[in-house]
Amino acid sequence: MPGDPVAAIAARMAQGMSNATGVQAVYEQYTELFGTDKPIPEQFVIYLRNVLRGDFGYSISQYPRTVGDVISSSIGWTLMLQLPAILVGWILGNLLGALAAYIRKGFDRVLMPASLFLSNLPAFGMAVILLVIFAVNLKWFPTSGGYDYAMVPSASWEFMWSVIVHYQLPFWSIVLITIGGQAIGMRSMAIYELNADYVKYARFLGVKDSKIIRYVFRNAMLPQITGLALSIGTMVSGALVAEIIFSYPGLGNTILTAVRGGDYPLISATTLIITWMVLLAFFSLEILYGLIDPRIKAAQSE
């Protein structure tokens, strides 16, 4: 691996020292602290053992903070931002897609090309555009951060308000990006279901339209849930880059500072945490799918 990040931090700590053996001692102390004096395979085993105990070691770029400390201060922001945003975007997208499939004509003609273009805009592009329009030009929202710089995090109303105001732009940029792709998927699924035999049969029987729509929507939802599970990784990575554009104090910025500082422990821990989060989301969606789809219950009871 390129560069010796421990040398950089040792040089920072030994600044102004003219005594060569002193500098050497500082360097050795840090290599021991970070464990880089041992061979790579041994380092890896030690790392695995520590991670299992929940110990990610010290951050190099933000020494003497521990990696666990850095991550725990940023993971809440990311969870609070991305989980609601992706869910809201998914629900709105599905509703719009189903509406487009049901109404067709005018609504569909406007919505389809719009969502096709929206879903092709990269997440950071949407973030920059919203930022420029609503924060720089209209000045409705602040340009960066998770709360006002002048404030200290506390449970006061002012602080909560500041958090809410800072929350809007990152939230809506993720929602808008999510809507496009989901609407397209839902629309084609709903059209497919609307043409299915059971819908025609129900129509001939004179079942009310609103009831048919409920069945159609439910059936079209199932593949959409699988789709969400499979694309959640891509969504999260897009949203992380969007966080960076807004300097939101979440994991996206943690990765950025780690990359800039050559901070190996922080990078590996952050990516590990994100992977865990995605896996957890994946797992809960699978369980949800089992609850919603009667076929899975039926298969299990056989």
């Binding site: 499979l230 990784g233 891509t234 999260v236 990575s237 992380l240 990765i255 990359v259 990078i267 590996s268 990516t271 994100i274 992977t275 995605v278 896996l279 994946f282």
Partner: peptide, 14 residues
């Protein structure tokens, strides 16, 4: 499939 490919990308390029 379950590990986001972007995360693997970050690790490799870094």
């Amino acid at each position: 499939t379950v590990i986001p490919s972007f995360i693997i990308l970050i690790l490799i390029t870094f």
